[in-house]
Design a protein around this nucleic acid. Sequence first.
DNA 1: GATGAATGAGAATTCATTCAT
DNA 2: GATGAATGAATTCTCATTCAT
Lengths: 210, 210, 210, 210
Amino acid sequence: MFRFGKLGDGGSGAVNDRDGDAGRAAPRKRADARRNERTLLDAAAAVFVTSGVEAPVRDIAARAGVGVATIYRHFPTRADLIIAVYRHQVESCAEAGPALLASSATPHDALGRWVNLFVDFLVTKHGLAAVLRSDEAGFEALHTYFLDRLMPVCARLLEAAAAAGEIRPDIDAYELMRGVGNLCIGADSDPRYDARRLVELLIAGLRLPR
Amino acid sequence: MFRFGKLGDGGSGAVNDRDGDAGRAAPRKRADARRNERTLLDAAAAVFVTSGVEAPVRDIAARAGVGVATIYRHFPTRADLIIAVYRHQVESCAEAGPALLASSATPHDALGRWVNLFVDFLVTKHGLAAVLRSDEAGFEALHTYFLDRLMPVCARLLEAAAAAGEIRPDIDAYELMRGVGNLCIGADSDPRYDARRLVELLIAGLRLPR
Amino acid sequence: MFRFGKLGDGGSGAVNDRDGDAGRAAPRKRADARRNERTLLDAAAAVFVTSGVEAPVRDIAARAGVGVATIYRHFPTRADLIIAVYRHQVESCAEAGPALLASSATPHDALGRWVNLFVDFLVTKHGLAAVLRSDEAGFEALHTYFLDRLMPVCARLLEAAAAAGEIRPDIDAYELMRGVGNLCIGADSDPRYDARRLVELLIAGLRLPR
Amino acid sequence: MFRFGKLGDGGSGAVNDRDGDAGRAAPRKRADARRNERTLLDAAAAVFVTSGVEAPVRDIAARAGVGVATIYRHFPTRADLIIAVYRHQVESCAEAGPALLASSATPHDALGRWVNLFVDFLVTKHGLAAVLRSDEAGFEALHTYFLDRLMPVCARLLEAAAAAGEIRPDIDAYELMRGVGNLCIGADSDPRYDARRLVELLIAGLRLPR
DNA sequence: GATGAATGAGAATTCATTCAT
DNA sequence: GATGAATGAATTCTCATTCAT
């Protein structure tokens, strides 16, 4: 089955080489700032795994061996940090959509596979799903990013399946993704709960009664 | 469709008529305390609606017009308060199970209706679903209460449907309820998200391929 | 060795039959009030043993099976309660002074025995010694009572010993009692610490170099 | 008579010159933090004098003109703060032991002088003696520090005196220090009570009857 | 640019004491 | 007289965020 492709960073490790803005030669100082940002992202990823995405800023700074203010400089908002940490995986996920559509037997099948990818991603991110649906101010950026990037992909798959007459047409991508996200909340801390199985049910439920 | 019957307190209002059982047993003095407890429950319900079930104790006290310690006297633990606030509705929900099983066309149908009841309840309780799945110490009592009361009902319906060959037999009541609960998280604050529809999908997904 | 005589209540049990103010026939209601006061004193004594004399008022009320206000009615101040609880033993101690002086070989010997009595009393009263030296407002009554009752007795013994040329004349009763009281603080909770032995040293130290 | 040597800070004033060891080791930035820590220690010392070592954290912060969290940063535990405040004096006291042994006429004499030092220290520290004997959790560090540092010194003096046949051999350093400590409780707030005199008695009482 | 010290608002919880019934 | 419910002050501790160095 599809995995988060080229990266293989199963949810913890190094992330992000920051948009390849190869562009104009960055001023010298950028070198260590860049290194710093990288360190920060790795540290954040690690802390997120153990303490969740709402972990105290201080913990992340400590892990990275930098001062807290450094985090604020690079990522004014917690959402910015979260986005940066997961950007690669989100991108991979987004890119996987069309590929799956092309390679799967049916659109509904592709949809199921793609959603599995999304679930695999979320389930391993302690607290991400929860914050993804939080309405606390300051997370709009996060919502926006995830939605902007993934919703179109999901919508595409839904349309295809609907067009093929495989699924009910009355559900939209936003709602589906929100539902899937919700089903992933707390999935990592409860051995009696298997988010994947429930999501499978949800996708199965989309099927039109043949 | 079934509603929370006689009560009709759609998630905010007065709760708890606490021993309407006129009985002599209760000491007289309770008169004002009784009134106060009631006030407290109403205030809590109201605050829960706007600020979620994790609202500061102080806010609830203020809303009720009492001192904080009064809350602690009546409800030593936040879980106690939450349980008290929602007890009636939980009971109603639990009692509705067997009735639905008897009155519905098929067990799967009964299951769907019952789950709808549960969703109707949760969706209006800002933050309840979230706290229900929280693993923070201090909420065990809450989990226990909900689970003890509702899981058996759900299990009963699942068994019936499975026995009738209507649904897949590989899902248990705990997981289903958790899933449904999760789908309700944040449902009240997002107009684009309809938990009922998604839960419907989930239940539909249980169906065995004819 | 001398004990707290007739009483034999080694620090816990029932205390106080409240000044036998046999006087004029007390109004009827007094009967249960009297009983109540007695219950209260027993309860207080018991709680003092386990939780110290600074135990929460509520605990004492609970133990006595009465409301907190009842305590306040009978004993407006914590000091009043403490005094009432220990009155008998303090009286016994006070009365033992002259008797010891008469029955002992020398005044210094009598002093030692009497101080032992005082120590036996204090050591078993969790926290009494501490509160006895506390300067918190509200304990003056307590200090006053203890001092008024016991200091003269101690002074008498000191004088006799000084007059007999057995001890240094430059220490007064107040200071000695305070010292002894202090040595008793916390004695019951520390197995490595024996207040009696230290007090013995102190008394020994009074001796004039022969 | 011996005093707390070079310091002469009779119980209130400036404490702690914290690494006067110019060394390169300490990072530059500490400049203001250092000043702050010093301010904090001075403030704490002052507040301790008036309100005792159990004074509310907030009061200390206010006195120092800093936020409460600043205290927590520097001294996570109240015990840490107390230790820091008194460290110098404790050290001086500890160091004085051997010196006194060498310079005094007899070991018993040295013991008396050393104990006087200890008393001088304690008597001026409102509440220190009380907390020193408290069994509340959170003060172990404090007990440990004081005991670790001072008990061996006291033990040494006791042994020497015992070896010289000057004193009774049946008292150990822990008990003696505890007793002396107790005698100092509340000594500063009671003009009729002179802890020094009583301690003197205690030490005199150790003497073997010639 | 980086640092990490300082800030101060917030939330929980406990008890002595008063007061309506 | 008795009750025990209500009060509300007091205290601790934690973090996100800012700012002087």
